[in-house]
Write a protein that binds this DNA or RNA. Structure first.
Length: 361
DNA sequence: GAGCCGTGGCC
DNA sequence: TGGCCAAGGCT
């Protein structure tokens, strides 16, 4: 039995690796094995498509080519480079982890599971990916692709949204992985999931590991993998103010250090509550939060924005500034239209900016 | 464990 | 059109 498993594993490795070397995409993070570049790519690729990541990867490495460069950069510049990519805590965790590597490991990315897993933003998948791809260590790197591929190959109906399922698949990979070429094995499994063993219409007819696939044999590949359905996003209604001062500068505000869109910039806004009119709520909010007296003008337009777990319905008002109080909000700034480009805004507020600034010209 | 955390593309 | 998905991790 044990011998059969080994023979089967060897044949699987051969089939997968042969296919991978003949069909792998030419991706910018596959040009060398620089652990820093591999690391950056793996963080960017979390829950994000390859085609989306590519331009960000180039720009990011252009600005922060080394661990040292990223370690000593301003967080605002790092967020600006991440602007539009989403899941912004990835950028802040990456910089924090890079600073840790710079200080505690003399700028060398550690090569053990234990050490690398302590770094912020590096979980079970990313640690295995860096160790195998950059350092050639036979560690499993189980992402959504791998879970789909293995669920089908083993015809397993385990729910892949459960943590236990991922751990089980890691055990399977540990026994199946090529010790000679763990990098190509892990990447090959992911590449197979991305190009052949796709979620909705897998190309089983050209699959290099079709002979090993229990789901294909039983013709149940379209039922797999099993995954719990997501809840639909909750809707929040916001009112937002576009305000210029006498110098033509615009009031912007930096979000909280934690939570949604942490430390990104936005136009002053508040979630609606109670019965009062939108303009009354906005007027009071601006007085209390920014110590300014205003006259709420016309409702300019609406912006809808859907996040993974919530949905914003934003009503934007044109606001006239009447007077400025003596106190000031520490996280707010008046900026010119030229300077605003230096600040990182979420896509929802980029929509607002584009509409309002175009209108102002 | 389950909810939080973005965005763009696809069918 | 909208629900689903994509090289997950943190709390």
């Amino acid at each position: 039995m044990q011998l059969e498993k080994q023979i089967s594993a060897k044949q699987f490795q051969l089939d997968l690796l042969t296919w991978f070397y003949g069909n792998k995409r030419d991706l910018p993070w596959r040009k060398d094995q620089d652990p820093y570049k591999i690391w950056v790519s793996e963080i960017m690729l979390q829950q994000t498509r390859v085609e989306t990541v590519i331009p960000f990867f180039h720009r990011f490495l252009d600005k922060f080519p080394t661990i040292e460069a990223l370690a000593y950069a301003d967080e605002g510049d790092v967020l600006k480079a991440w602007e539009g990519l989403g899941y912004y805590s990835r950028a802040r965790n990456l910089q924090a982890a890079v600073r840790e590597v710079q200080e505690q490991y003399q700028g060398i990315v550690p090569d053990t599971k234990e050490e690398i897993s302590k770094l912020k933003g590096v979980g079970p998948y990313t640690s295995g990916a860096i160790l195998s791809i950059a350092y050639g260590k036979p560690e499993p790197a189980v992402d959504g692709n791998v879970m789909r591929v293995i669920s089908r190959i083993t015809a397993s109906y385990d729910d892949i949204s459960k943590q236990k399922t991922r751990v089980n698949i890691e055990k399977i990979i540990s026994e199946l992985i090529s010790v000679e070429d763990p990098s190509a094995f892990n990447q090959g499994l992911m590449e197979l999931g991305a190009l052949i063993c796709t979620p909705t219409s897998p190309s089983c007819n050209v699959c290099p590991v079709q002979a090993h696939c229990a789901a294909f044999e039983q013709n149940v590949q379209l039922e797999l993998p099993v995954k719990a359905k997501k809840k639909q996003p909750k809707e929040k209604k916001l009112v937002c103010a576009f305000i210029r001062n006498e110098l033509g500068q615009v009031l912007i505000h930096q979000r909280m250090e934690t939570g949604l869109l942490a430390n990104l910039w936005e136009f002053p806004n508040i979630e609606l509550s109670g019965e009062a009119s939108l303009s009354d709520q906005l007027h009071l909010f601006l007085k209390m939060e920014y110590f300014i007296e205003t006259s709420i003008g016309d409702e300019i337009f609406h912006v809808e924005h859907v996040f993974s777990h919530l949905k914003w319905d934003v009503t934007i008002f044109e606001v006239e500034l009447l007077s400025v109080g003596e106190s000031q909000n520490e996280r707010a700034r008046w900026v010119t239209e030229g300077d605003i480009k230096a600040y990182a805004f979420p896509v929802s507020h980029q929509k607002i900016m584009k509409h309002c600034l175009l209108k102002g010209e």
